[in-house]
Every structure is written in C-alpha cells, then in structure tokens.
C-alpha cells in the first residue's frame, strides 16, 4: 500500500451572463416619506446574496446608509420584469439596473434638497450617512429624511427611479460562430494538493490554493462565501457527484442524499484564497459575478493532481475510486509523476 501525493493546476475564465443578451433586468426604487428607500426587484435570492448585494449597490448609488435601503424580491404585481437568477447574471444585469434606478432616484433627491437649500443640485453631494450637503461646505446640509419629507409634502416630487439593463438579443453566426459575448470575464487559477491511495483508489483533497479575479468584491464576505462554498462544490463534482453512475445507462441512479454523494463536514479542505479585483467597464462598480465560476477550475485541477500522483488520466467525471483503481490495474500500478 502506498499513499501518493499529487499536485494539480487549472485556470479558467468565465463569461458573465447569458452571452447573447436578450436578458433584461429591471429595478424600481422609491422612498418612504421619511427618506428610506425601497428597491423592488424580480430577481431571486437563492442564497447567493442577491438582496444583500443589490442593497449595497442601491445604497452606494443613492448615497444613503445601507440600513436605510431595503430590497424586496420578487412579486410579479409590484416588481418589474427580470429574467431570473442564473448564468451569473444577477450581480451584473440586476446590479446595473439597480444603479440606473438608484441614480434616477438620487437625482430627484438632490433636486429636492437643492430646492430646500436654495442651491443648484449639481453643487450637492451625499455623505453616505443620511445627509446631503453643499460640496465643499459640509455645514450647509439637509438630512435625507427632511429632503424626503419636503419632497413628499411640500414640493410634490417623488424620490423614485426606474432602471433597466438590457443587452439586446443577438445571435451567433452560423458559419463562423461570430458573436458578442458582451459581458465581462471573471478569472481564476487554482492549485490542488491531494493524496491517492493506490490500493483502493480513494482520493483525499488536502489543500486548495487559489486566486480569483472578481472585478470588484462588492461585499468581500459574500464573495468569500461563494468562493469557499463553490470550491467545495467543485471538489464534490470532481470526485463524487453523479445522478447516473453507469452513464449513459440509467441504472442505479441515486434517489437520496445517502447515495448521492457529496463531501461531508469531516472533509473540509483548507482553502487559501487570494481575491484579485480588476473592475470591468460595464459591470456594477466593476464587479463580476463570482457565483458560478468558482467551482469550475477545481474539477480539472483535481484530475491533473491525480495524474501527478499516480499517472492516471481521469477524463470521465466523477473520478471515483473505481475509475482510479481500473487505471492502476491497466497501468500495472501507480506511476507517480514529477514532484511539484
């Protein structure tokens, strides 16, 4: 028996969103009478943090405290149209729509404040703490709450905004495949260290070191959540998951979580992440969506590390102990590759 250490690498890019466009997102923003802002979306929060990140985007754009913003998803009677949460389109498409809606609401807010302060709206700025002040003269200020009250009850003005972000539908060319993916690309590179048991084919992932470029970490903790959870899912896809162990035969398909395998809490892999931020021009504050791409580099990095450990190319997923053992039998044993 021997345990063989292996190290593998992979790097990827990920196109954000549905690349041929035609996937609009809308947002509506309005203020309460006392200057809190409600954002209505039809985007879905399925755990990725849609409500939280759009709330931060609205707060930043409006220039008001994040506590004064609340995001409501998704009610088709009150929320405007949105295609949905998939293809990492949420941050990018919905985020842009929220910026537009919030920008318009901000404009109304500054005009209302300007009327109260008797200055030009273009001379005003927000401090992000609930105040609007004259640029360069912080003492000449009015609170957002008072502004909203004045707009509502004195000026007859709404502090509201609407936003849509659309990349119009296009197509791929039939002959050359020419197309405009339009969106930005997120990037990642990742090193996996693992061990392979050459008697059973069992693999134990020991460590992950990674670099993810996400445009901008709109909320660093949400990004971290995605990257750690996503890498776990990548390990799971690489080594465990399948609805059809005998693919393409449909026999013995798992029907519960006991036989549909995913690594448990006893298999947490230390994951050292570096987050890089190169803002994308058309993304909200430059942020690309980290949610989907984070699992992708793990799969090939695991396969490459297994080759490094025992000299077997595992080209069919998931890489089960059986596939490794069959490879070892075919090769006449482990053939460890160069130590990296």
């Amino acid at each position: 028996m021997a345990i063989h250490k292996g190290r593998g690498f992979a790097c990827i890019n990920y196109p954000i969103g549905m690349n041929l466009g035609g996937d609009p997102a809308q947002a509506l923003v309005h203020s309460t009478p006392d200057g809190k802002f409600m954002v209505a979306l039809s985007a879905i929060d399925l755990g990725q943090g849609m409500k939280s990140v759009t709330r931060q985007i609205a707060s930043e754009t409006l220039g008001v405290p994040v506590e004064d913003v609340y995001v409501d998803t998704a009610d088709s009677d009150t929320g405007p149209h949105d295609m949905g949460s998939f293809a990492s389109r949420g941050t990018h498409r919905v985020g842009n729509a929220v910026i537009r809606a919030s920008a318009e609401a901000r404009k109304q807010m500054l005009e209302a404040a300007a009327e109260e302060l008797e200055v030009n709206a273009s001379d005003l700025d927000t401090d992000g703490k609930g105040n609007i002040h004259v640029k360069g003269a912080p003492s000449r200020s009015i609170t957002v709450a008072d502004t909203a009250m004045a707009a509502q009850f004195k000026q007859g003005r709404t502090l509201a905004g609407r936003g849509i972000f659309l990349i119009p539908p296009s197509d791929a060319d039939a002959e050359t495949g020419e197309m405009t993916p339009v969106t930005c690309f997120a990037h990642a590179a990742l090193v996996i260290d693992l061990e392979v048991d050459d008697e059973t084919g069992d693999v134990e992932v020991k460590e992950i070191n990674s670099a993810y470029e996400v445009g901008r970490a709109l909320n660093p903790k949400l990004v971290e959540q995605q990257l750690i959870g996503g890498a776990w899912m990548g390990v799971s896809h690489a080594l465990y998951e399948t609805t059809e162990p005998q693919y393409p035969k449909r026999d013995h398909g798992p029907q519960d979580f006991n036989t549909y395998l995913m690594p448990g809490p006893g298999q947490i892999v230390p994951h050292n992440i570096a987050v890089l931020e190169r803002p994308a021009e058309d993304a909200p504050f430059g942020g690309k969506g980290p949610g989907e791409m984070c699992a992708n580099p793990v799969l090939p990095a695991v396969a490459n590390a297994i080759y490094n450990a025992v000299g077997i190319r595992c080209d069919r997923l998931p890489i089960t102990p059986e596939k490794i053992l069959r490879g070892l039998r075919a090769n006449g044993g482990a053939r460890p590759q160069q130590v990296r």
């Binding site: 008697e199 162990p245 013995h252 398909g253 102990p321 059986e322 053992l325």
Partner: peptide
Amino acid sequence: DDELATEWYRREV
C-alpha cells in the same frame, strides 16, 4: 452493483 460502487470494485477492495 449499486449507486455507491460496482460489484467489480467491491470485490477488488
């Protein structure tokens, strides 16, 4: 053979 492993693998290990 089942969801978790094949007969072949079980006999091998």
